[in-house]
Design a protein around this nucleic acid. Structure first.
Lengths: 347, 347
DNA sequence: CTGAAAGCGCTAACAC
DNA sequence: GTGTTAGCGCTTTCAG
């Protein structure tokens, strides 16, 4: 059998498998077999099809293939937003995925959808929209609801429920918070405030609990006026910081639930003419990249973000390849105090 | 018309539109209409369908919808790898996309595919695999080849070709490199080496050119032995740094093509017992988050990464909504010297 | 060894 | 107002 010398030119836009088939003078199923290296195609035909594929710059549509086939060899990382915390995790995930044969797709879903408007449950929506089709497995970053009975294997990082739900990776938020608060106490502070994190996250609850425990341990009475809601985002912590610093008897130290709110607290303090760390000590949580480069460099609790991402990958791949590797269904990493320059002895 | 009270339970796994239709006792097209808010469905039916949707936790498959429909309202960011440079860009892109109604999907393609093995052209492959279906538009980070005649609007950040190809966003690599080298010269250095970047990127070429220009301007002869290939990745710059520091007459200063190779150079120097900045000054490029937190803090050329990401979004949205907004087809941002502690006067 | 046809989950004409 | 039908681009039995 001989093939005509490139009968027709490629049509405009993206080439489909039909274009390849037409130009090569074979059927689509033959092209499909060649592309996927299936048996049952003569060497000659195969070579010819491959030539046309190259010529047309054809690349099979991940979407269409995914819809039809089961596996896609793509891991999905679902985030609410691409903020520093998720980004550091992503870096670790990406690195851990190198050479595994899996591609990485990260998705930040937000609005749209039938049950519009509700911020909560974004992870369920995103997972539902991508799962069962586009991705073989998912890593969900700070999900707010119980992991849905998903169609694909899932591991959650820093989930709402703590290690209660499905497979999870988190760090020791309680010990971290205790260490942060103790650090402040050892520096001689007594009026220590807490900018609380997202109410819908277990990590935030544990950080508050650690704060209270360290206080109690040192015999310092808990003052409800010194605990304000900051959420985990900069904007949300602005009013919290304002409120704290406007108090008649303001705190001399603040333990913020994460670095973003810690940094914002320092900015607000500065605007109030309060010097950090001279007049106010501030400690954060997470140790995002910006913490170290901030002025002054932020004392914080380091979560091994990249390692956590890598751990999530390891577990997920185990689920995908092996069976139900329930052995390390819950991984907890240490959270460590990193002393920099945003904290100083009380005066 | 009355509806039966939830006839059948949802099947296992992800619910499809068929499940909803069956349980609700209507046709799939009716469900589709309700989901997408189309006209032609009675209020009663609509409410009932919505109830079943909620009950079943149904969410339409992005993939299937995308395949059928044109627009998906998701923007794709194509990267070769999730490294610090791309991550910072992503942060800016994500922020700029807030409230625009577009979701964000980032994809790092790698292996697999018919034309396997070739690292070059990953962007064409990824775009081809996602485009035309999953994403409405794409932002490609450091593409190595000419932007393909894509099926969707595309803007390239820091492309191989410079502002030659399609729509691009980059920073002033030439001026940045000149500033970096001048800084070293002003510090009294004469033997200044250059760890070259990725050969396939225009940005790397321009940085070398700036280095040469600044040298010439100061009347310093160009020494080929002082220019080595480092790529942009840490591992790739290890041998480069080794080679440089093992020279009989080693340099007293190094201008590295990016922060990752600058940091690696400092690490290698340390291993050789060479102190930075006392015995060796090092300046990088990019100002990734790790630059400031490195010890010693890295003197570098700052690219406004987040702003570049935001600019790319702005242009892309213009292309998507408006028509061909060729007005700012090429955006060039300034690159600025940031002096920290990895550089010092020559001794 | 190759091609025709069914169907993945969904939407959009077009009937009824 | 509602259901039927024809694909989107692809893979995969199953005939030829």
């Amino acid at each position: 059998m001989t093939f005509p010398p490139t009968p027709e030119a490629a049509p405009s836009g993206r080439a489909t498998i039909h274009d390849v088939a037409r130009v090569a003078g074979v059927s689509v199923s033959t092209v499909s077999k060649v592309i996927n290296g299936r048996y049952g195609v003569s060497a000659k035909t195969s070579a010819h099809v491959l030539r046309v594929v190259t010529e047309l710059g054809y690349e099979s549509s991940l979407i269409a293939a995914s819809l039809r086939r089961g596996r896609t060899h793509v891991i999905g990382v679902l985030v609410a937003e691409f903020e520093p915390f998720a980004l550091s995790l992503l870096e670790g995930i990406s690195e851990a995925l190198q050479g595994t044969g899996y591609d990485l797709l990260s998705y930040a879903g937000s609005l749209s959808g039938p049950t519009e408007g509700q911020h909560e449950g974004w992870e369920r929506r995103s997972l539902s929209r991508l799962g069962g089709t586009l991705i073989d497995g998912a890593i969900i970053v700070t999900p707010t609801v119980e992991a849905p009975s998903a169609s694909v294997p899932v591991v959650a990082i820093d989930p709402h429920t703590g290690p209660a739900g499905a497979t999870t990776v988190d760090s020791d938020n309680l010990e971290g918070a205790i260490a942060a608060t103790r650090h402040l106490i050892e520096l001689g502070h007594r009026r220590i405030a807490h900018v609380r994190g997202r109410r819908d996250l277990e990590s935030a609850r544990l950080r508050e609990e650690g704060y209270r425990m360290a206080l109690a341990e040192a015999g310092i009475a808990f003052d409800p006026a010194l605990v304000v809601d900051g959420g985990y985002r900069s904007e949300e912590s602005t009013p919290a910081a304002e409120q704290l610093l406007s108090l008649a008897d303001p705190p001399t130290a603040v333990f913020a639930a994460n670095d973003l709110s810690a940094i914002r607290t320092i900015e607000i303090a500065r605007a109030h003419g309060i010097s950090v760390p001279d007049d106010l000590s501030v400690v954060g949580f997470d140790d995002i990249p910006a913490a170290a480069s901030h002025e002054p460099p932020l004392t914080t609790i380091r979560q091994p973000l990249r390692e956590m991402g890598a751990a999530a990958v390891r577990i997920l791949l185990g689920k995908l390849d092996g069976g139900d590797d329930a052995s390390d269904a819950h991984v907890r990493m240490p959270a460590q105090l990193v002393i920099r320059a945003s904290t100083a002895p009380a005066r």
